[in-house]
Design a protein around this nucleic acid. Structure first.
Lengths: 208, 208
DNA sequence: GCAAATTAATGATTTATTCAAG
DNA sequence: CTTGAATAAATCATTAATTTGC
């Protein structure tokens, strides 16, 4: 079943890339094309039109979205990793407390309000916690669609070519490494930003 | 002197709207056009071309920017207002403390670490404080109308893809965590990003 | 007055977020 | 849930205002 190959039966409101198209696009993306310019877009589109209906704007959006979601995935993975480190750290800390308390047997109930190893408290919560942090809520509803199609492609008009550089691996310089001191790292207190972004904001005013 | 009316003498790299064009655009904006669609854009552009060189993309960008900066201004004003309320409140609070201390003359030096009315401490600081602003990300907008689709896509001009390298780590405090000590109304529980400049629309240029 | 130097505005791009079809 | 499409936010870059020293 090729859901994208339907041509005239139902006026699909949005582009459905064929398998070949997606494969080629991903190939190009991996090959280094992250932000094609107008002429590249046109070229790609005309090439891909061999495999199904496609327009320049589809190519444009595809690269935009792919790049964005790539970065997103990376950020998420990184955050997840940091969070896991944090949990491990806390675990070790509480374990140490517990051991210590056990050692001087019933001496200091004041040392900490905890008397049992943390991992019992965290019974099965680790997974939950880490997934809860990064949950998105998409909606599923279906009203009507009447979208206004205008020509993005007409606007692709400019000169120049120039390959952009790979730029890979760059977007992953999120917030600080935040040297992990035992406990109290991972400054995401409570449920503040549920978004998985880090908004690195550095104002670099460039004096000319 | 119409600095924007130069037509072909200097190869200006960007559009410089004439005064008439700006006036008309603002008129339209106030009239309710916030996000014109493609055909509206074309229409506006062809109309405005009577007053000087202009393209569709210029119109598109103008509306985008104008809308964004409008919202920005609103947010800023609102925050300023809230912040002023907060300051007033703190002032009253400390004033009350002061009065109370005066009343039971020198009885309780322990009541608070303050012994003088706050407004003396805030000598001339109120202004400063209100200019250090934070900006939040609020939502509440509107596109209630049917200006759907504004597309004029990017990629008009592709310059050197100079990727910014600005991202760097180690701000000592990524989370401002400005928990207010005294009082603590003004519950900014949202993300505080403090950036952005306080551009006074008026000519408040304080000579130092 | 008048340029060099700063600063503010704003046009143009890029990135993040949101909406909704499939 | 995935992802094409669209919008909003953030950012970059250039032009206009303006301050400033002469």
């Amino acid at each position: 079943m090729s859901p994208a190959a339907t041509s005239a039966s139902s006026p699909s409101s949005r582009w459905c890339p064929t398998r070949e198209q997606v494969m080629i696009l991903e190939e190009m993306y991996r090959g280094g094309i992250k932000t094609p310019n107008a002429s590249q877009i046109q070229h790609i589109a005309s090439h891909l039109s061999l495999y199904g209906r496609i327009e320049g704007k589809n190519v444009f959006y595809w690269f935009q979205n792919h790049k964005a979601r790539d970065r997103q995935k990376l950020r998420r993975k990184l955050l997840m990793h940091q969070h896991n480190l944090y949990l491990q750290n806390q675990l070790m800390y509480h374990q140490k407390l517990y051991d210590h308390n056990q050692q001087n047997n019933h001496q200091g109930p004041l040392l900490h309000h905890l008397d049992s190893p943390l991992h019992q408290l965290y019974q099965g919560r680790v997974e939950d916690a880490s997934t809860q942090l990064f949950s998105y809520t998409w909606k599923a509803d279906l009203p009507e669609s009447s979208y206004n199609m205008a020509d993005l492609t007409n606007r692709f008009r400019d000169r120049d070519a120039m390959m952009k550089k790979a730029m890979d691996a760059d977007p992953t310089s999120p917030c600080p490494d935040r040297t992990l001191k035992t406990l109290e790292l991972f400054p995401i207190t409570t449920t503040i930003s549920l978004k998985d972004q880090c908004t690195s904001s550095t104002k670099v005013r460039n004096p000319s």
